[in-house]
C-alpha cells in the first residue's frame, strides 16, 4: 500500500498544499482557488515553453486546472500535489501539440533529432571555442533569446518537458520522475541529452557571431 508523501511546513505560514487539497476535496472552492494562485505561474511557464504559444498556454492552463479539479477526489497524496499538477499540465500540453501536428494544415515544425557533440574515432573531443566567456546571462540579447527559444522548441517533446521542469523550473529529478511517470535514470538521461543538444545549438549561435 502506498503511503502519503510528507510535506514540509511553508515558510509563509500559509496552509500547505495537503491541507488545501483536503479542503478542496470536501468542496471548498476557495481552497482550490488558493492552490491555483500558488501554482499557476509555474504551470504557465511550462505550458508556454512546451507549446510555444501564449494562446495555447492559456488553454492548457484552463484544461489542466479544470481536469485537476475534476480528478481531485482521486488524488491520494502519494505524490506531491505540485508533481501531480505538472503531470496533468504536461499531458495536456503534449496532447495539444500532437493534435496540432496531425492537423492537415500543420506547418512542418517537427522536432529535430537530438544532436550531441562529435568525437573522434578514439572518443576524443576536438578543441573548440570557449563561448562560455561571452555567454554572461546579463548580456542576453533578443537574438540570443530567440535562438534559445527556437532550439528548445525543436527538442523532442519528451526531452523538452524534462529539460524545462529541471533547468527552468528547478524541480528535483525525483519530482520530475513522478510527474512524468518516468524512472529517475530516464529523467537524468533525457535531461543530459537535451542539454547536449542545446549546447550544440548555442555553440552554432556563438560561432556565427
Amino acid at each position: 500500500m502506498s503511503e502519503q508523501v510528507t510535506e514540509e511546513p511553508r515558510e509563509d505560514g500559509q496552509p500547505g498544499d495537503r491541507e488545501l487539497v483536503e479542503k478542496a476535496q470536501k468542496g471548498d472552492g476557495e481552497a482550490f482557488a488558493t492552490l491555483v494562485e500558488r501554482h499557476q505561474r509555474q504551470l504557465y511557464r511550462l505550458a508556454l515553453r512546451m507549446t510555444g504559444s501564449e494562446a495555447d498556454a492559456q488553454e492548457v492552463l484552463q484544461e489542466a486546472f479544470l481536469n485537476a479539479y475534476q480528478k481531485l477526489p482521486l488524488f491520494r497524496g502519494e505524490a506531491q500535489f505540485s508533481s501531480w499538477l505538472y503531470r496533468i499540465a504536461a499531458n495536456s500540453a503534449l496532447m495539444r501539440l500532437r493534435r496540432k501536428r496531425r492537423a492537415p494544415d500543420a506547418l512542418s515544425d517537427q522536432p529535430l533529432e537530438l544532436v550531441g557533440p562529435k568525437f573522434s574515432a578514439e572518443g576524443y573531443l576536438d578543441p573548440a571555442g570557449d563561448w562560455s566567456q561571452r555567454a554572461d546571462e546579463k548580456m542576453m540579447s533578443a537574438q540570443l533569446g530567440a535562438a534559445i527559444q527556437k532550439a528548445v522548441t525543436q527538442l523532442p517533446d519528451d526531452y523538452r518537458t524534462v529539460f524545462l521542469l529541471k533547468d527552468v523550473d528547478g524541480l528535483s529529478n525525483e519530482d520530475i520522475a513522478t510527474a512524468l511517470d518516468l524512472t529517475v535514470p530516464a529523467v537524468k538521461s533525457r535531461l543530459h541529452r537535451a542539454r547536449l543538444a542545446l549546447r550544440e545549438k548555442l555553440g552554432e549561435f556563438f560561432e556565427a557571431k
Binding site: R41, R49, A128, V168
Partner: peptide
C-alpha cells in the same frame, strides 16, 4: 571548455525562458 559551455547552456536557457505569467 566543454564543461564551461555545458554549464553556460543551463544558465542561459534558464535566463531566456523564465517567462512571467
Amino acid at each position: 571548455t566543454f564543461v564551461r559551455t555545458y554549464k553556460a547552456t543551463r544558465s542561459l536557457c534558464r535566463a531566456a525562458l523564465a517567462a512571467q505569467m
